[in-house]
Design a protein around this nucleic acid. Structure first.
Lengths: 140, 140
DNA sequence: CCTTGACCTTCCAGCCGTTGGAAGCCTTAT
DNA sequence: ATAAGGCTTCCAACGGCTGGAAGGTCAAGG
């Protein structure tokens, strides 16, 4: 299997496969006499694992840990669960951050007439540093 | 006002101020005879505006637009609102993406015993590409 | 046999928004 | 005079890719 075929089979871009190899996420592939990388279905499985883990938002570093646990038959499921829950905690923190941004902006946009006039509570908020709704003159 | 003082006054790191100048987000600051950057309270206001906008997650590109609208007295609030709502849409899309990841992982982690045994539905999901819950043998 | 085109190789650069460090100049205080 | 602290520029790294250039290799067709 060449890198292109492995890419198709795994869903991971050929360039990305080389990148993953270069950073040590996956082991160095074997080579033909001409220097072409060669892949077996086993390596394709690892690539698929990596791809799925990326889809779930795991960092490369954590994926390295997960692949290690996956290969380790004497792993404990507790270790895997801990890695997953650490990641969930980070996701939830990020979601909360984005949620706060979005809600603030939706509120400001709601208060904005959105017509041809220049007056705009969104710009006022940016100007004043977000102190709008802590006072009394916000009007909502 | 030197760059360090402007940094304190605006809450934007001195290094970041130079970076913002280098990419054209803020205009080039004036200089003393010795080459030190000089800031007025006006420029500090711009920095504060930028900082608040970053806090709300706006990209540098959109902040450039927002600063332009802010300075433009003949702007329409509709333009500002559109920029804000475009950003809200992006935030919501990102939130939905992270939400899906987190929910999937929480579900998998819930199904994982988290003990010393190696068997783990999280690894099974990564191995199989997330097909677990579309079938019948998932067990939840 | 030669060409064409599709693949493969390496290396280098850029995206975003920062942050860090190195090397050197300027100012102020002691 | 000298030390400390600020300022200057430039270069590099983070994460996770993605693109391009320049060149080698392979299979099919004329």
């Amino acid at each position: 299997m060449t890198i292109g075929e492995a890419a198709k089979a795994s869903g991971v871009n050929a360039k990305l496969i080389r990148y993953y190899e270069s950073i040590g996420l996956i082991p160095e592939a074997g080579r033909t006499a001409a220097g072409y990388r060669v892949y077996s279905s086993n390596e394709v499985n690892v690539l698929r694992f990596v791809k799925r883990a990326r889809t779930l938002g795991f960092s490369i570093e954590r994926i390295q840990t997960l692949v290690g646990l996956w290969q380790d038959r004497s792993r404990s499921s507790a270790e895997v669960k801990r890695v997953a829950l650490d990641h969930v905690a980070e996701l939830e923190a990020k979601i909360a951050e984005l949620r706060a941004m979005s809600d603030t902006l939706k509120h400001l946009a709601h208060a904005c007439h959105g017509d041809e006039r220049p007056d705009c509570p969104i710009l006022r908020d940016l100007e004043e540093g977000g102190g709008c709704c802590h006072g009394v003159d916000c009007g909502h």
